[in-house]
């Protein structure tokens, strides 16, 4: 039974591309689809998932308390009041990334499975050091978040290589903060460009447009996935449906090439 549980690490290499926002919103959207979702903040020492979910005032115990036996997992898990089947396991804020080992991380994941969750999403710290290795240790799938911007795509490529080395093959890709107008005016990398750079092993899971409602809703502690009218929220809801196996068309991505580019594509596409 617990083998059906999806354990997905959300990672990026580069910081600030939207891992935590993605974790919060994909989690929320999955829960809205009726899944039992646990979100684990693996960014020990730099806790932020609590803010993205608006749960920061309800933290009593954290993952270190669980690992070191001061609290039971059930006590540390915070149930979301808006979405009853969503829970968060907070990171510790006072320790650093070496405070939890890969083995302990795997054990926490096993214990979460035993609690009956159907999805466990792990919010990975930035970087490629021990914190990354710990966060990926218990996962069986990976989502790589990138922005259509050079440093972020380069780091995503590095992370994909490292994930493969950890046995996490064929990661899923979310392109976050796409500015469709800039793609159309040939000023920004398109989703297709990003895919071309990262190669065929990566499967596109979602495209999230740059959207002011991300900022306003995060400020309020309400993930955009809950806002019906938000386009980014819609993008996250689509990600959740794709994770559940549905074929959902992507939003209009401004992929249009120049006329010459389109003609060239006609002749070069296989």
């Amino acid at each position: 039974m617990s083998d059906d549980v999806r354990v997905i690490v959300i990672t990026s290499g580069k910081g600030g591309v939207g891992k935590t926002t993605t974790t919060a919103n994909v989690g929320m959207a999955l829960a809205a689809q009726g899944e039992k979702v646990a979100l684990m903040d693996a960014d020990i020492g730099l806790r932020n998932l609590d803010l993205a979910l608006g749960l920061e005032n309800r933290i009593v115990y954290d993952v270190i308390d669980v690992v070191e036996g001061r609290a039971r997992l059930k006590q540390a898990l915070i149930r979301d009041k808006r979405m009853q089947n969503l829970a968060m396991l907070p990171a510790a804020q006072t320790r650093d990334k070496s405070a939890v080992s890969a083995t302990q991380m795997k054990q926490v994941v096993e214990d979460l499975k035993a609690e009956g969750f159907t999805f466990i999403l792990i919010d990975c710290p930035a970087g490629i050091e021990q914190g990354f290795k710990n966060a990926t240790a218990g996962a069986t799938e990976a989502i790589v978040v990138t922005n259509p911007e050079m440093a972020s795509v380069r780091d995503a490529d590095r992370i994909i290589g490292l994930l493969e080395a950890e046995g996490l093959r064929d990661p899923m890709l979310i392109v976050n903060r796409l500015r469709i107008k800039m793609v159309e005016s040939q000023d920004m990398l398109s989703v297709g460009d990003v895919q071309e750079v990262l190669g065929n092993s990566v499967k596109l899971l979602g495209v999230v447009p740059d959207d002011n409602t991300i900022i306003t809703s995060t400020n309020r502690g309400e993930p955009v996935a809950l806002l019906k009218e938000s386009i980014a929220g819609q993008a996250y809801r689509n990600v959740a449906r794709r994770l559940l196996g549905e074929q959902v068309p992507f939003l209009d991505l401004g992929e249009r090439d120049s006329l010459f580019g389109r003609i060239k594509k006609l002749f070069t596409s296989k």
Partner: peptide, 27 residues
């Protein structure tokens, strides 16, 4: 300028070309 092909490759094309270069070097 772009319409007249005066300004060289677009920022989008530059980014892609440069990325393909560094990524292949990294790998």
């Amino acid at each position: 300028n772009r319409l007249l092909g005066r300004s060289g490759p677009t920022p989008r094309a530059c980014a892609k070309e440069r990325l393909l270069g560094v990524v292949i070097e990294d790998r």
